[in-house]
Design a protein around this nucleic acid. Sequence first.
DNA 1: TGAACTCACTGAACTAGACCAAAGGATGGC
DNA 2: GCCATCCTTTGGTCTAGTTCAGTGAGTTCA
Lengths: 238, 238
Amino acid sequence: MKNKTDMPLKMKDVLREQISGGSLLPLQKLPSERDLSDLFSITRISVKDALASLETAGLIYKENRRGWFVSPPRVEYNPLSRSHFHQMVTEQQRIAETQLINISTMMAPSHYAKTLALTELTEIHVIERLRFIDGRAVLFVENCLISHFFPNIISENLTQSLTTLYQTKYNFTTSRSRFDVIPAAAPAHVAKALNISPGQQILKICRVNYNQHAQIIDCEFEYWRPDAVMISIDSIEH
Amino acid sequence: MKNKTDMPLKMKDVLREQISGGSLLPLQKLPSERDLSDLFSITRISVKDALASLETAGLIYKENRRGWFVSPPRVEYNPLSRSHFHQMVTEQQRIAETQLINISTMMAPSHYAKTLALTELTEIHVIERLRFIDGRAVLFVENCLISHFFPNIISENLTQSLTTLYQTKYNFTTSRSRFDVIPAAAPAHVAKALNISPGQQILKICRVNYNQHAQIIDCEFEYWRPDAVMISIDSIEH
DNA sequence: TGAACTCACTGAACTAGACCAAAGGATGGC
DNA sequence: GCCATCCTTTGGTCTAGTTCAGTGAGTTCA
């Protein structure tokens, strides 16, 4: 029964059409909120609502105070596979990069201690890294290693795969991993690194890895931009 | 440097506090947006923004034109396990219910045909069901079965586990399953059943099941309220 | 050449209202 | 006791602005 023009809906349809039709390409910037509000004669609040709903659908994303952009296709990610980030991304004809953000060594704070099933008096290394696909920051990773398993690891090149490093330098293979996938809000430090607004929706993956002696050796917290990834698992691969 | 009172932030803190502190219990209704906007002397837009950010964090949820409610704890769900919905929920000391929404029989439309790897001239049954935890609708499921594998299935009781039915009546066991997890927006028919606004964030799980003869027998599309679930997988269980 | 500065443009966050449509309780007729 | 109708309350959607803070390109100056 709606015979109003419903410009906000029209704006969504136009953008959807331009994205699927290829007039707007992945990573391309959309017009500014102010321009869109003039173009379609609607307020900026309506523009923001409409853009937010396209964002939820995974069609567009925003960068803090920079603007809105068209989302590239999702990468398929199997958290159970041995394949690491660079290999996985490359196999899907995309370009991967890793940037080291921070390393710190500390006594395990309670939430890490709990995940690693150890006491708070154990020393851990926390490695924070940012991962890019096709030049876009899509994943913030916190790796938390139990120090005594990995002497001198902090002097290694930590932009490569940690799994490979575990194997070649420390002779540890991952015999078992356990992980949780949770739709959540971005914590402040993650939001800053990914250049999104704090509290925005992200996909959180918490993983715990066991070595060949069934010892927990490290855990990992991954924070993905929700439009960048799709978890894909096949029971036959184990 | 912010020395403004920042009432929207204060509202979030108060609600967060009341939820974690137990003054607001799971499934309990929050004051209306208008009441909150009076209480904290902020506009309804700011109230909505603040509530939306608590929603993203998984603390509260809303029902269409009914109001905002406190989210119960997430259930842990392992899509690889043989355990079915009722069993999984019961094991976590929660109450499960299933409601049959609709059954239809048709020639496979293209997106189903693609997922099931068959031609569009194959007949399929589509079973739509709504699942509840502790009385709250949290999951909309579409099961799509290849008809010739399941003669007369539509006259069975379809609020029980389909996996069990496959086994007892048709002698099919699931030998392999493959699934994708995607943060997405709720399609209109799903939004209606779950009583959420169309386009709102949900967690979509697409699963394909193979029988003991390595034939694809059905696929399933699950749409979860994102605050209700957490995917939890352990590689050792296979 | 290169580092520091300026400034226009961007979204972020907010105020102060408006009307609409669905939900659901209260009411009243039978 | 039951059912239809009314009415209040709810969120949904929208208009029309404002102020603030980070971004980044261009400019200036040592």
